[in-house]
Amino acid sequence: MAIPTDPILFDLDEAAALESAEAAGLSRGRLVLRRFLRRRLSVAGLAVLVFLFVLAFLGPYLSKWDYRSHDFNAFLEPPSWSHWFGTSQIGEDVYAQTLRGLQKSLIIGLLAALFSTGLAAVVGASAGYYGGWVERVLMWVVDLLLVLPGFLILAILSPTFRGRTWLLFVILLAGFSWMITARVVRGLSISLREREFVQAARFMGVPSWQIILRHLLPNMSSLLIIDATINVGGAILAETGLSYFGFGVQPPDVSLGTLIADGTRSALTFPWLFLFAGGLLITAVLAVSVVGDGLRDAFDPNAASPRGRL
């Protein structure tokens, strides 16, 4: 007997079918977007984040000072009309430096968090879903990376990478912070794999990678989003530590991390060295976490929607 291969798809009721063509419902992407937009706080968080980006990249053009230039007429001046955020010990403009730092930190923080959580999700879910040798190899890598002291490795490798692009730095930063999440994701995937909706998809012939993307990951989105949110702050701070080893952001270039590290020593006596960088870091991390909360609720149909239910 022949197996019918191309879809015939009977029409039950032509008129009804045409009428229903528009009402076929929103896909998950649209639905999640709509649910996200309904949360004012999260939308505000997103707006703050966008504002920070605009500030970091367009802000420097407003001031006549460059982050590398020195004003030898103003050492350790408090904020004034010529130096909006004041100046440092050697006459650098704190405004220009802070925004330059914000540029670096925002990109490093967000990218490292995305890379790290993304890698954890893909590796963990693949290990959990496929099982067998895939799982053994991936988990072996994870365990190996877990026992290796990341900082030490980076310190040893740093001469090799000196002067290369900061993107490499982001990748390395992410490369040493995803393992624990990957293990948690693997555990969740193993239990999700046995759920009937995954089996149903498998029996329908849905390819494995699609099952992972459509069923496994969305069902642990809460964990992943929280993890990514924490990673943003973590990456910004970790970058400070690495810069100390002479790796990452090197003088005269600055990041929020290096500014804060330098500023803390004189936080009470010359607060402007510290306050602006610190304030922007807190604002950025808070904004990210509010956006994360909103996304998490938007993905989770159990979360009550503030206005109506779809």
Partner: peptide, 20 residues
């Protein structure tokens, strides 16, 4: 248990159609 709690019904129904 057999319907993905995170997927709207429309997406659940069209999953097989999409695959094929």
């Amino acid at each position: 248990a057999s319907l993905d709690p995170r997927l709207p019904v429309g997406d659940i129904l069209s999953e097989g159609l999409r695959t094929h």
